[in-house]
Nucleic acid binder design. Structure first.
Length: 158
DNA sequence: GCCAACGTTGGC
DNA sequence: GCCAACGTTGGC
């Protein structure tokens, strides 16, 4: 069992969008970065949990928790010329990009903002989200980091 | 294999 | 909207 953080721009797909889906399950697709692809293809396992993070927004923050309900499988949006994620170098016989399916577990009682996470950097230790210039959209979270961030949620904001 | 140019990400 | 950081592309 591992923990992860998945970034999404709320203008493209937000936690509210996920909440509105009847079964609250969505493919996590359109990831076009090799390091993130490798995590999706090789490392995210059934029942792993992940923070849902809103990026590139006024207040970047962790806003929810999802669980993996289907492990890595080919991202077929790469095969579709009409898709914004189309990539002709990926073929069904030799898929380049992968996705997982996730299900909403819960929306956090309050968002844990990037500002607050930075304030807790000393406790969090080495955390890919806080690395300078980090652009990775699928990144690992240690068990200690996961647990600590959940305790932040239950405490009042700084 | 190098590296300049370019496109994208994402915080601010 | 700006721009620093980073990844990718492609000429050589």
């Amino acid at each position: 069992m591992s923990y992860w953080l998945l970034k999404s721009e709320p203008s493209a797909f937000s936690i509210s969008d996920l909440e509105a889906i009847p079964d609250q399950i969505t493919p996590w697709e359109g990831v076009r970065n090799y390091q993130a692809r490798n995590f999706l293809r090789d490392r995210l396992c059934l029942r792993d949990q992940a923070f849902f993070y809103h990026s590139n927004t006024v207040t970047p923050a962790i806003v929810g928790i999802v669980e993996v309900v289907r492990a890595g499988y080919p991202d077929t949006t790469a095969f579709d010329p009409a898709s914004p994620y189309y990539d002709p170098t990926s073929t069904p016989a030799n898929p380049r990009w992968y996705r997982v399916d996730v299900r909403l577990l819960n929306v956090l009682q309050r968002p844990i903002t990037l500002i607050e996470l930075r304030q807790q950097a000393a406790t969090l230790g080495d955390f890919a989200l806080l690395r300078r210039g980090s652009r990775l959209s699928v990144l690992p979270v240690s068990t200690a980091q996961w647990t600590f961030i959940l305790t932040l949620m239950h405490a009042p904001p700084l």
